[in-house]
Design a protein around this nucleic acid. Sequence first.
DNA 1: ACTTACCGTAAGCAATAACTTACGGTAAGT
DNA 2: ACTTACCGTAAGTTATTGCTTACGGTAAGT
Lengths: 105, 105
Amino acid sequence: MAIFQRLAHGPMAVHELAALVPVSRPAVSQHLRVLKDAGLIRDSKEGTRRVYELDAAGIARLRAHFDQVWDKALSAFQSSAEKATPQNDKAGEKDDKRRQKRRHS
Amino acid sequence: MAIFQRLAHGPMAVHELAALVPVSRPAVSQHLRVLKDAGLIRDSKEGTRRVYELDAAGIARLRAHFDQVWDKALSAFQSSAEKATPQNDKAGEKDDKRRQKRRHS
DNA sequence: ACTTACCGTAAGCAATAACTTACGGTAAGT
DNA sequence: ACTTACCGTAAGTTATTGCTTACGGTAAGT
């Protein structure tokens, strides 16, 4: 996470990243590897260095996945809440705006 | 996660939940404890049973936190990407990058 | 060509997380 | 009162994660 947040400030090489976190350089490489496998970052060779940067598409994808989880949880929650108290289901519609889905690019 | 998603289908008692996941009942209890400490679920005594259900406010709170992370990452990424390609980057890019070779650390 | 700078991967180890069994405790049925 | 059903917690074990050191490999400077 700390590594990910650091990359949000701009592309960086591995040894620069390693200087900013309290772990060794190979450890940073390993973190970068899982982030890359997850599609959240990309890398490019630049001389003997290897520069990593965020991958906006991958981040958007993960974000959409989480949004789906939250939406499903919240909508199912309120439908079951209505079923539990069938007499007041009119009072349960107060959060219309929260159900409004976020628009992605 | 599997336990959380199950609770999205409606409130449930512990032993019911345990029947749906491939772990023992105490393990489910421990997971529920973590989720409760995180404010994502609530529990209510119902006879000898204990029924758990999602906590909409806690979920919304976590969702907001994640949204903030994504927003920060994507916006920072965009600004740095614009700065990296103000016009055509073939001309001066190599020089610029090489210049900060071992300035740090 | 050799040396330097950077990097990824493998192997081994320590810390942590996740699970199981065992136990005790409360509420309801008989 | 006893029994049954349900549950949380503690203790101990196993699996997973996260890190370090060690090594080899490529690109650039000399």
